[in-house]
Simulated assay, not measured.
Amino acid sequence: MALPPSFKQAHKEDLEAIVQILVKIANRPAQQIKPHLDTMLEQLLEPEERPFYETATPQEWVSAFREWVESHRGLNLPPLSDEAISRESIYGERG
């Protein structure tokens, strides 16, 4: 996402002041500073994507879970035996 020209125009003086301060601090020419400043501003102005768990509907949760289950079906793993999942084998002497 590039900074819109309207943003650059609306904040032209502020952006130039920031560039001049960074030129002094970094001891580099403005041509080297501007691309980094643009990239940083793009990241700051870009709306953050909210995580799935905050935005998903119950149906989306169900769908995602089913997709996850299906993604494991092709692994061709042997099933666990009854002995492997017995209470005794899981808890041992703590039973």
Results as ranks from 00 to 15, higher is better:
1 M>I: 04
2 A>H: 08
2 A>L: 05
3 L>K: 05
4 P>E: 04
5 P>R: 07
5 P>G: 05
5 P>D: 12
8 K>L: 14
8 K>G: 02
10 A>I: 01
13 E>C: 08
16 E>Y: 08
16 E>H: 10
17 A>K: 12
18 I>T: 00
19 V>H: 05
19 V>F: 12
20 Q>H: 13
20 Q>S: 13
23 V>H: 02
25 I>F: 05
25 I>N: 10
25 I>T: 09
27 N>I: 02
27 N>Y: 01
27 N>P: 00
27 N>L: 01
28 R>G: 01
29 P>G: 03
30 A>T: 05
31 Q>G: 06
31 Q>F: 08
31 Q>K: 11
33 I>R: 09
33 I>L: 14
35 P>G: 05
35 P>V: 11
36 H>W: 03
37 L>W: 01
37 L>P: 07
39 T>P: 00
41 L>H: 10
41 L>C: 05
45 L>F: 03
45 L>C: 02
46 E>M: 12
46 E>C: 09
47 P>Y: 05
48 E>L: 14
49 E>G: 02
49 E>W: 04
50 R>F: 09
52 F>K: 06
53 Y>S: 11
53 Y>Q: 10
54 E>C: 03
54 E>R: 07
55 T>E: 03
55 T>K: 03
59 Q>T: 08
60 E>I: 04
61 W>N: 13
63 S>D: 12
65 F>Q: 10
66 R>W: 06
67 E>M: 07
70 E>S: 06
71 S>E: 01
71 S>C: 05
71 S>Y: 02
72 H>G: 08
73 R>L: 14
74 G>M: 09
74 G>H: 14
74 G>P: 07
75 L>A: 14
76 N>G: 09
76 N>D: 14
77 L>T: 10
77 L>I: 09
78 P>K: 00
78 P>F: 00
79 P>H: 01
80 L>S: 13
81 S>Y: 00
82 D>S: 01
83 E>D: 15
86 S>P: 02
86 S>T: 04
87 R>T: 15
89 S>M: 13
89 S>L: 09
90 I>C: 03
90 I>A: 03
91 Y>D: 06
91 Y>P: 00
92 G>L: 07
93 E>W: 06
94 R>F: 13
94 R>I: 09
